[in-house]
Amino acid sequence: MTTTPVIELSGVSRRYDEEPAALDDVSLTVCAGESVAILGPSGSGKSTMLNLIAGLDRPSAGTVTVDGVRVDKLGEAGSARYRRAKIGMVFQFFNLLDDLTVADNVLLPAQMAGMARGEARRRAAELLGTLGIGRHARAYPGRLSGGERQRVAVARALMNRPALLLADEPTGALDSASGEDVKALLNDLHADGQTIVTVTHDLTLAEACATRTVKIVDGRIAADTRTGATR
Score class of each variant (00 low, 15 high):
Arg231Asn: 12
Ala113Asn: 06
Ser42Ile: 03
Gly118Tyr: 01
Val90Glu: 15
Thr63Tyr: 07
Ala85Tyr: 10
Pro109Tyr: 02
Phe93Ile: 01
Glu207Cys: 11
Asp188Ala: 09
Ala61Phe: 06
Val30Asp: 07
Arg81Gly: 08
Gly146Lys: 13
Ala22Arg: 12
Ile216Glu: 06
Arg117Tyr: 06
Gly43Ile: 00
Asp25His: 02
Arg149Ala: 10
Lys73Arg: 15
Asp192Glu: 14
Asp202Ser: 09
Ala110Thr: 11
Val214His: 14
Asp104Ser: 08
Glu8Phe: 00
Tyr82Asp: 11
Leu96Asp: 05
Gly134Ala: 02
Val199Pro: 01
Leu52Val: 13
Leu131Ala: 13
Arg84Trp: 04
Ser44Lys: 09
Gly142His: 04
His136Leu: 12
Val66His: 00
Ala184Cys: 05
Thr213Leu: 06
Gly228Pro: 05
Ala208Tyr: 03
Leu144Met: 04
Leu108Ala: 12
Pro59Met: 08
Met112Pro: 02
Val199Trp: 07
Gly88Trp: 04
Thr198Cys: 08
Asp67Glu: 15
Thr2Met: 01
Pro141Lys: 13
Ala22Pro: 00
Thr198Asp: 10
Ala113Phe: 03
Gly62Asp: 02
Leu50Asp: 08
Leu189Ala: 06
Phe93Gln: 03
Lys46Tyr: 05
Arg83Tyr: 03
Arg212Ile: 01
Arg156Phe: 02
Thr130Ile: 10
Gly62Pro: 02
Ala177Cys: 05
Val12Arg: 04
Tyr16Asp: 14
Gly75Glu: 00
Val66Pro: 00
Gly78Tyr: 09
Glu19Asp: 12
Arg70Asn: 11
Leu205Pro: 12
Asp24Ile: 15
Thr101Pro: 04
Leu203Val: 15
Gly88His: 10
Leu52Tyr: 05
Thr230Met: 02
Thr211Cys: 11
Phe93Glu: 02
Glu8His: 00
Ala139Leu: 07
Glu19Lys: 14
